[in-house]
Structure formats: structure tokens, C-alpha cells
Nucleic acid binder design. Structure first.
Length: 251
DNA sequence: AAATACCACAACCGCCAGTAG
DNA sequence: CCTACTGGCGGTTGTGGTATT
């Protein structure tokens, strides 16, 4: 028994979102909150399927999103988390407030993976490439299973990041700030915490620092500007989105 | 200046898990 | 208990922008 498609493709617009569509979606969600996504397009007057609306909101329009490049500290954390969690991008994203799984996934595929390969590290197993080659000739090629193994057998903090790499020029080496052990404790804590609301102080290259943030998108003032461009009251936006984000489990 | 190659990221697709009826 | 439905996740693709030749 086949499942119904999430939306019939007839009369449903696809492709890049226009500012007008964004405006409609934002204003609808800020007014009504997130209800069932299937109903959103109809109620908001959009010719999109609910799934598309949800994706657009989650990955791009959410007011608590941080925009811009990932900091070196965030990148480092992603690598550590990936070593433990594998391709569970949503879990990783949950530890990086203001970042989406899609964003992290893209960044991993376009930047970090290449970087690791360049450094001689297998991005799938986080082991030196020479070792992985030998291992993969024998068996498992699945990165997921490999990561599962890592998870269970606990090869944590085994991210042998070469310290002499010139790649580090793009950012600070966090290991200069915290020992591997500290790093590991941090990751363990992050893995346990549900919503740590980390705030990676951008521009501070001393590594990651954790401060409580009254508003998760404190630094992302571009967002407010964007909303203002839509002719929306930013204070209203903050109030609404605060309410909604505290409602939603992982909005 | 034009053509081509490469890169980054937004968006889509298909599958899965949870759950209401 | 079974079925259908929804939301969410991860993989993949398409497209616009930038760099290189």
C-alpha cells in the first residue's frame, strides 16, 4: 500500500523561494505559530507543499538562526561530534544553536571533509587514511557502521588533528586552549545537554567560549534587518519567536 | 572579455519513526 | 493490532556565483 505523496505536485510551486513567499510564510508562522505543516501553505496562501514550507522555515527563515561562516570553534566541535555521532546531522546541529542540520551537512561536505582528507584523515572514520585504507580493503566501507563502532567502542577524542598542518591558518587550534581531555569532557557534556544554548563568540579566536545568551540570535542582527525589510516589527518578532521557540522541541 | 571549471548552498527526494484513529 | 498520515532526517541534485584560463 503506497503512501500518499506529501503533496500532489500539481499546482505546487518549486524552486527558489521569492521574498514575497518568505514574507507570507514568516508572517503566518509568527502570527499563528507552527501548526501542522500540511495546512500551512493553504492557510498562508502559498503554492508550496507543507514540506517545502517546513524546510524553508527550518533552514532559512527561523529567527534564531545564526548566519554567516561557521567559526573555527564550531567547525572543531562539528568534527568532534561527527566522530562520535556519525552523519546524524540533526543531532550535531542540536549542539550548535543557530545552525541547521542542512547547513552543517553542507559545510561538512564542502569544507571539512576535504580539509580532513588533506590532513590525511578519513572523514568517515576519523582515522588516519593509511589505517582506514588497510581496514576498508578487508571489510566495511560503510561510514555509518564505522561511526557506530566508534560510538560503542568509544574512540572518543581520537581526532588526531595534526598540529603542524598549515590548514590551521584558517583558524586557531583549539587544542592550544584546552587539553584533549578537556575537549572530551566538553563534548560529553554537550552530548548530554539538551539545549546548551552555546554562544560561540564570533571574532574571538581563542577557541570556543560558552556564555548564556538571553537571545540565541543576539549576534544575528541581520535577521532583524531582514524582517524589517519585510515591514515587520522586530520587537513583535522577538516576542513571538521566543514563545514559539520555547514551545517547539527543536524549533 | 568570454568561456569554462569549480564551489557553495538552497532545495528536493525518498525513506523512516512515531502516532492517532 | 493495523493502517494511514505527518513530521523529521539524511542523501543528493540544481543553480547561481566566483575563480581561472
Amino acid at each position: 500500500m503506497g503512501r500518499k505523496p506529501c503533496c500532489d505536485k500539481q499546482g505546487v510551486k518549486r524552486g527558489p523561494w521569492t521574498a514575497e513567499e518568505d514574507k507570507k510564510l514568516i508572517s503566518f508562522i509568527l502570527t499563528h505559530g507552527r501548526c501542522c505543516w500540511r495546512a500551512v501553505p493553504k492557510l498562508a496562501g502559498l503554492l508550496r507543499c507543507g514540506k517545502s514550507c517546513r524546510l524553508r522555515w527550518t533552514n532559512y527563515l527561523r529567527p534564531d538562526l545564526k548566519r554567516g561562516l561557521l567559526t573555527a570553534a564550531e567547525e572543531e566541535l562539528i568534527i568532534d561530534l561527527h566522530a562520535k555521532l556519525g552523519n546524524r546531522w540533526s543531532k550535531i546541529a542540536a549542539k550548535l544553536p543557530g545552525r541547521t542540520d542542512n547547513e552543517i551537512k553542507n559545510h561538512w561536505n564542502t569544507h571539512i571533509r576535504k580539509k580532513l582528507v588533506k590532513m590525511g584523515i578519513d572523514p568517515a572514520t576519523h582515522q588516519p587514511l593509511a589505517n582506514t585504507k588497510a581496514a576498508t580493503t578487508g571489510s566495511a566501507k560503510s561510514s555509518d557502521t564505522g561511526d557506530e563502532q566508534n560510538l560503542k567502542e568509544g574512540s572518543p577524542g581520537d581526532m588526531a588533528m595534526p598540529t603542524d598542518s598549515s590548514e590551521q591558518s584558517s583558524g586557531p587550534d583549539p587544542s592550544t586552549n584546552a587539553s584533549d581531555q578537556d575537549q572530551d569532557l566538553l563534548v560529553n557534556w554537550l552530548l548530554e545537554a539538551e539545549e546548551p544554548w552555546l554562544n560561540f563568540t564570533s571574532g574571538n579566536d581563542d577557541g570556543l567560549s560558552i556564555v548564556s545568551a538571553p537571545l540565541p540570535w543576539d549576534d544575528a542582527t541581520d535577521w532583524l534587518l531582514d524582517y524589517q525589510d519585510f515591514g515587520m516589527d522586530s520587537s513583535n518578532l522577538i516576542n513571538n519567536s521566543t514563545v514559539h521557540s520555547s514551545n517547539g522541541s527543536n524549533l
